[in-house]
C-alpha cells in the first residue's frame, strides 16, 4: 500500500486533495484502464511525497469582510507528523500548530497556552481561510474514500489535459457528491480540482498555477481555493521554498517543543 507523505502543513491541504486519489483501490482491479488511472494518479501523488519536508509559504485570504496575509514555515515527517509556525504578521507570530495523527495542538504565544482541538472545532475555518481544520487532518484517510475514473482526455482551452472523476465510496465520511481533478497530460501536474455537492452543484474550486522549480522539480507554486457561492473570495497559498528528505528529529513534533519556540 502506497502512502501519501505530506510535505508541509500547506502541502497537507494540497495533499488533502491529492491523497483522495484511490490508489489502493485501483491496484486491486487489474483492468488496463484502472491500472493506467492508478498509475497516473500515483505520479501526481508522488509530486508531494518525501520522508520529510520543509517549506516556507505565504497565505493570502480575501473575503467580503477582510483581506489578510500570513507567512509561515512548516516541517513534516512521515505522514502523521506536521508542524508549522507563523512568521508574519506580528499579531500572530510564534503561533505553532502541531498535527500528530488526528490530533491538532495549537500553541498561542499571546497567552502562552497550548490548546488541543476537539471534534467540535474540526469544521471551523482554519486561520480565517476557506479551508477547515478538518481539511488538514483528513488526508491520511481520504485515499480510501474515492473511486476514480478518467472521464476526459484531450485538448481543452488549448491545453492537453486529463480529467479524473472521483466518486466518494458509499461508506466514506465525505460530504461531497463528486470531485473532478484535471491534470496536464504531459507533466501530470494538477491544474484544477472541483468539489461538487450531492446535487452536483459546484461547491469549491482549487486551482494550481505558477509552475516553478521547487524541491528539485517543476511544481505548481500557487494553490488557490475559491468557494463557489462566493466567487469574489479566495484563499491562496504561494510557496517560497520547498525541500524534501531532510533529517528531522522526532522531538520537533512533540507537544513539549511547541512552547520552546
Amino acid at each position: 500500500m502506497k502512502k501519501t507523505q505530506p510535505v508541509s502543513i500547506i502541502v497537507i491541504s494540497l495533499v488533502t486533495l491529492l491523497s483522495m486519489l484511490p490508489l489502493t483501490a485501483q491496484a486491486d482491479e487489474p483492468t488496463a484502464d484502472k491500472t493506467r488511472t492508478s498509475k497516473i494518479l500515483n505520479i501526481v501523488d508522488d509530486l508531494w511525497r518525501g520522508k520529510s519536508s520543509h517549506a516556507v509559504t505565504t497565505m493570502r485570504v480575501k473575503t467580503a469582510h477582510y483581506t489578510r496575509t500570513m507567512r509561515m514555515e512548516g516541517w513534516s515527517k512521515g505522514k502523521e507528523k506536521t508542524l508549522f509556525r507563523i512568521l508574519e504578521p506580528l499579531r500572530e507570530k510564534g503561533t505553532v500548530t502541531l498535527k500528530s495523527g488526528t490530533h491538532i495542538f495549537t500553541y498561542l504565544p499571546k497567552t502562552d497556552r497550548t490548546i488541543r482541538l476537539t471534534s467540535g472545532m474540526m469544521m471551523g475555518a482554519w486561520m480565517g481561510s476557506h479551508l477547515t481544520n478538518d481539511d488538514l487532518v483528513k488526508e491520511a484517510r481520504l485515499e480510501e474514500d474515492y473511486d476514480a475514473a478518467i472521464t476526459f482526455e484531450g485538448r481543452r482551452d488549448g491545453k492537453e489535459l486529463i480529467e479524473f472523476t472521483l466518486i466518494p465510496k458509499v461508506d466514506a465520511a465525505v460530504v461531497w457528491g463528486k470531485v473532478l481533478l484535471t491534470i496536464f497530460a504531459d507533466t501530470y501536474t494538477p491544474v484544477t480540482q472541483r468539489y461538487y455537492d450531492e446535487d452536483m452543484q459546484l461547491a469549491r474550486t482549487f486551482t494550481f498555477t505558477d509552475m516553478k522549480m521547487l524541491g528539485g522539480r517543476e511544481r505548481p507554486a500557487v494553490f488557490r481555493v475559491v468557494p463557489a457561492d462566493k466567487p469574489d473570495e479566495f484563499t491562496e497559498f504561494t510557496y517560497e521554498s520547498l525541500e524534501f528528505n531532510l533529517k528531522l528529529s522526532d522531538r520537533l513534533f512533540s507537544k513539549a517543543s511547541l512552547t520552546k519556540r
Partner: peptide, 19 residues
Amino acid sequence: GKKVVYTTTDVHGEIVSAI
C-alpha cells in the same frame, strides 16, 4: 436521502468521522 458526515471523539479520544 442526503449525506451527513458526523464527527465525534471515539473511545480512545481520537477524532472519528462517518457518513
